[in-house]
Design a protein around this nucleic acid. Structure first.
Lengths: 118, 118
DNA sequence: TTGACGTATTCCCATATCGACATGTAAGCT
DNA sequence: AGCTTACATGTCGATATGGGAATACGTCAA
């Protein structure tokens, strides 16, 4: 048995620095592959492969535009990581206890809102 | 070139599910290796190796107690991940905009407070 | 059609991984 | 001393990786 596939989940996909960079760029909005290639200074095939991984874990979406592919960020896929990390917040900041309550408070003020669908 | 070493950073270390489990258990407090072995149902050598990786990225600390080694969580090492993920929060919840302001507010109300104890 | 462009896919290879098993080492007990 | 317990480390093998280079598409322009 070897290491888990990078496409197993967001944790594995994002372990690769280049892939993180790609996502960072995409925060700025939809981008065609070529733009990513230039921004990252990587070879096009490499970028395409990284994008494939990100696609497979759902971290990005593609849209066809002629012969170009526009990639867009889909942060939803990163949410599990963020949620997982929350249980450790206390470890580096006790004051987050207070924050927790602020959050709960906010959530209760907007019941039925998008917070928990799907 | 192959995949980056698991000891490169927290991102890589935590990509492994077992390692995540270990950290989850340690949230409950210091534990000797053997307890982790039982809880995770893994072979002892495997656990020790995973702990080594977690140690190298600073996610856990060890303390010697006779012939036992007590491992303790050090969430500090996971903070960079959490921080990195923050830039994507907006992507899955617009309402975090408001939260951002609440946070800033809290920080300003407690200048010089525990925020940076270390 | 021919050709250029934008991407995706395939092949090759050096490397690091994780689990299983064996061994090493230090601490504690009798 | 000898034995056992608690961990750590080493070796082996199967596997997936990520970059490079080549190639296969699909689309648009002449």
């Amino acid at each position: 048995m070897a290491r888990a596939a990078t496409t197993t989940d967001a944790f594995n996909a994002v372990a690769e620095p280049r892939r993180r960079e790609i996502l960072e760029v995409l925060v700025g909005g939809e981008q065609p592959v070529n733009d990513l290639v230039r921004r990252l200074g990587l070879a096009q095939p490499q970028v395409s492969k990284h994008l494939r991984v990100l696609r497979e874990v759902g971290a990005v979406d593609v849209r066809e535009d002629g012969r170009r592919r526009l990639y867009r960020l889909n942060g939803e896929a990163l949410r599990p990581m963020h949620d997982w990390l929350r249980q450790f917040e206390r470890s580096w900041s006790e004051r987050f206890d207070a924050l927790d309550r602020v959050l709960d408070d906010l959530k209760q003020k907007e019941p039925g809102d998008g917070a928990g669908d799907e």
